[in-house]
Design a protein around this nucleic acid. Structure first.
Lengths: 197, 197
DNA sequence: ACGTGACTATTCCGATTAGGAACACTACTC
DNA sequence: GAGTAGTGTTCCTAATCGGAATAGTCACGT
């Protein structure tokens, strides 16, 4: 009866296990810097929908207060995980299979049908992808660095650090795959460019 | 005005560039063995929805005939890409950015919040994931093998082969990442197991 | 011939999810 | 004290999922 919570609901519950009470808005922000790399950045509407559901089931408590403590401020609602929420999350982890990752990879999709356009166009796409990967690597590296100092066994960011390292490796692997594909396409490089590291 | 076609629509269009006329059902089957690895396996309902849209825009032609050629058989509709469809696909490839991949990775999501359960539970999950990766590798290898003989430059399956090789590398990389995580979790392995290759 | 079950083919429907727009208040700047 | 950047929440529409429902075909044994 409590098993009809979507994965995104558990993801939000999980974000709340790292300590603080958060507003929906703050949850969205945290999701945007962490969850987005290996899950989704849920839409605002979805976060508030989930929070209502979780609240209805007693897995989180909503704390409504007035902004700045003043009587006339607007209402701000923060959410915290409850004991029941901890248990539900644990039960989900222990008793339901994780499931296989789903990848929506537009670069690979386009590479698949590379025969409908010029090879040069495909090469360009792959080069662009490498640039985006570099950006993602930079963003994720920043996250990884911010976890330093609390990433040892027993410390709060041990698991997030493992995940970040995994993600960094993943992006590196993607860069390799992209280079291999470029090589296979007889990469000559855009005009005058020399091979990059 | 023709730019409001979802990516899945172009994916279907792309499947139709490999030659034959296909029924919606056959498209679903092909998607299940190829697209699923790096895009989605669209629901049947979605495939038929897209085919209607593509047909309305003249990007595919529907060919209705009676099963087995007999007058009394059921109606079967096959679809083929049109010249306009080829052009639309090409325009999409050349003029719209591919976009960054989206990964829905339940294993990483759970690893992130590994602190809510026992480490042994997390290890188990990672072992299960390796087993699923092996299965995926086997499936994709079979696809890859089926492309042999037509995977040289200029041949029809050159690009699908590139994509399959990329996918195989990706799954290998995932296995490595999983092993690294296991090692970091102080992997002792399930009772009596020895390290695998 | 007659069921039975597996496969092919299509449609339909309810429930999620995506993705923003809209709204409203706060806080800082010029 | 007007403007604009940021915070916090709600609402709406379209897209998507996922499978049930429907239905004909085929191969099989009886």
């Amino acid at each position: 009866m409590s098993q009809d919570i979507p994965v995104t609901g558990y993801a939000i519950l999980g974000l709340l296990t790292f300590g603080d009470e958060l507003t929906g808005y703050e949850i969205k922000q945290r999701a945007d810097v962490t969850l987005r790399f290996y899950w989704v950045s849920p839409a605002m509407s979805q976060i508030y929908t989930e929070l209502r559901r979780l609240s209805d089931r007693g897995l989180v408590v909503a704390d409504v207060r007035r902004d700045g403590g003043r009587e006339d401020g607007r209402e701000v609602t923060t959410y915290a995980i409850t004991d029941a929420g901890q248990e539900a999350l644990r039960a989900w982890m222990d008793q339901t299979p994780a499931g296989f990752p789903v990848l929506k990879h537009p670069v690979l999709l386009r590479l698949l049908i590379g025969h409908v356009t010029e090879t040069e166009q495909t090469r360009q796409m792959l080069h662009d992808y490498v640039a985006e990967l570099d950006q993602a690597l930079a963003d994720l590296s920043a996250v990884r660095e911010s976890l330093r100092g609390a990433d040892e066994p027993g410390q709060p960011f041990r698991f997030p650090s493992l995940v970040a390292d995994w993600g960094l490796d993943y992006f590196d692997a993607e860069k390799r795959h992209t280079r291999l594909a470029l090589a296979s396409l007889g990469e000559t490089g855009p005009e005058g460019e020399t091979a990059t590291a």
